[in-house]
């Protein structure tokens, strides 16, 4: 091989190695795992939900209404109500129960969003975290990243599915199916940016008693609970009696 060919190949090699490394350096500047800009949705609004546990009776109306509205497959839920039994260690005869509605927390820093490799899951300007199911490749990375087990791969669509605060209903001026169907009025949805909205007033009124799930996760959840015992803020330290669909 003559020298010019050799020099040419060595330059090609240098360029190739450089080309391999360029994308990594540019991504590190862009911040891997950083929150991408929000898109779509209503500007100026911040949708959130308050769940008043004192009013929840665990009837699962919300679970059923959500399933009917959003057609989630059997055994897969966008929202459900966990039920717990709490026994006093010192006075075992003292038993109480807790009904805990669970759904996507539409976090301000949703860890599910930056991991999505195709930007199918994103946060709207109004704070609602949604999935473009036509774009979703079903890799399940967001399911892993969600701290609340609020996402799942829909068995029928093979795409990721989750609570959207029924954004399609909100856009039409309707309440989400779970809020609409709640017998005790335990679920309240509203715009946090509106000082006179019911949710803003509730949060102000119960400022000291407002809690979120897994606050230490640093995700800034936007589903707020009234009446949540501290023992339920983080991962449950207890026994399980898992229900499983046959």
């Amino acid at each position: 091989m003559d020298i010019s060919k050799r020099q040419f190949l060595s330059k090609v090699a240098t360029l190739s190695v450089g080309a391999v490394l360029v994308p990594l350096s540019s991504t590190s500047q862009a911040g891997i795992n950083d929150q991408p800009p929000r898109r779509n949705g209503e500007t100026g609004k911040r949708w959130a939900m308050v769940v008043d546990l004192r009013k929840c009776i665990g009837c699962q109306s919300c679970t059923v209404a959500c399933t009917i509205e959003n057609q989630s497959p059997i055994g897969q839920f966008r929202t459900h109500v966990d039920q717990y039994e709490i026994q006093d260690r010192e006075h075992p005869e003292n038993i109480t129960s807790l009904m805990l509605p669970r759904l996507c927390n539409h976090c301000d820093l949703p860890p599910c969003v930056p991991v999505c490799p195709v930007q199918a899951t994103y946060q709207q300007k109004d704070g609602i975290v949604v999935v473009d199911s036509d774009r979703c490749v079903g890799c399940g990375y967001c399911v892993q990243a969600c701290p609340y087990d609020a996402r799942f791969i829909n068995k029928e669509t093979n795409s990721v599915d989750k609570c959207t605060f029924c954004t399609h209903r909100l856009e039409a001026g309707l309440l989400p199916a779970c809020v609409e169907s709640c017998i005790g009025g335990a679920r309240v949805i509203g715009d946090l940016n509106q000082a006179d909205s019911q949710i803003s007033q509730l949060i102000n009124e119960h400022k000291k008693d407002i809690k979120v799930l897994k606050p230490q996760a640093g995700t800034k959840p936007h589903v707020f609970y009234i009446g949540l015992n501290k023992a339920f803020e983080n991962r449950i330290n207890g026994q399980s009696a898992v229900w499983q669909p046959k």
Binding site: D34, V137, G138, C139
Partner: peptide, 21 residues
């Protein structure tokens, strides 16, 4: 493993430099 294997091309149509995947 991806539940929509026929959509693999989305990885290249929607490059997302902030996602490790």
């Amino acid at each position: 493993d991806i539940h929509q294997p026929a959509r693999f091309w989305h990885f290249y149509a929607c490059i997302t430099p902030w996602s490790w995947m």
